[in-house]
Design a protein around this nucleic acid. Sequence first.
DNA 1: ATCTGTGCAAAAACTTTGCAGCAGT
DNA 2: ACTGCTGCAAAGTTTTTGCACAGAT
Lengths: 161, 161
Amino acid sequence: MAASSHVDRRGPSDVEQRVTEVMDLLRARGGRASGARRVILEALVSGPAHRTAEELAEQIHADHPSVHQATVYRNLERFEELGVVYHSHLGHGPAQWHLDQNPHVHLTCESCGAVTQAEQAAFGAVRTDLRDRYGFEVDMRHFALTGTCAPCRQLEANRRP
Amino acid sequence: MAASSHVDRRGPSDVEQRVTEVMDLLRARGGRASGARRVILEALVSGPAHRTAEELAEQIHADHPSVHQATVYRNLERFEELGVVYHSHLGHGPAQWHLDQNPHVHLTCESCGAVTQAEQAAFGAVRTDLRDRYGFEVDMRHFALTGTCAPCRQLEANRRP
DNA sequence: ATCTGTGCAAAAACTTTGCAGCAGT
DNA sequence: ACTGCTGCAAAGTTTTTGCACAGAT
């Protein structure tokens, strides 16, 4: 697994390798390694970390007009079943799709919309607590935590002192 | 105006009082105390605690055919601005609308869809932690926490022991 | 009288589905 | 050859919007 920190420090060979891994997994589960899937995976692996299904479909369609929107939607779902990608709801509007690497929790500011990524490690205590109190095993990735970010809290504080 | 033979224990006069409170608040902010608003508020105050906008609209429309769906949507938004109601996303699909009383955190099971309500008190530590680490003031009500509930964890454990 | 809110219908935003043919195994 | 996958178009679901008029202040 490539250990890059951010968006696109990933060389072409890394992309190919990751894509091939997933294709193999797909085949192992009785699926087919189609051209459309390759294209979608390439877009996922090499583009920005968070995109909506629509954004992905649009970008893919631009590069590969033969790949239809519906195919993107269908495959995102399929990839999610395989545990290769997942989607998060960061605020209102459509979900954002990620590769399933370096899972993190999202903090979305309801004033300005800014999204901060928090380490999952920061939530060990809640996790334990919810397991103890409710027997509930929480997965913090699916929904963001909403609230007010530091800059917006400053603004509010200044507005009514 | 059907009084509450419903889910809750609130007498008709309580309903009226709460509705009037909100109408007054509305007027104080330059709004108008319209019939449609009264009807929508009555539905909110006297019905079940969690409903989607569509469910609300449907129920209201059944009792008061003249009140249109769009009016329900518009007013839910308005009421939320006033801090009277709020909506939460408990899972996929449309949001659920609540009165802003007794705020709680939702735990949604991704296997069976069950929703558990957790006390906000249980999250004091995360709240402090996020404020310290990120300057982020979290509001846990907007999005549910997703994960696996106790019964479903049992099932999974039994399936592959 | 003024200006907000409403009913209505139409459209927008996003996603899913049915089907016939194409293509990976 | 078998069956899963895709392109396409069409419809589904949920929410938003424009407009003329009704209604609250």
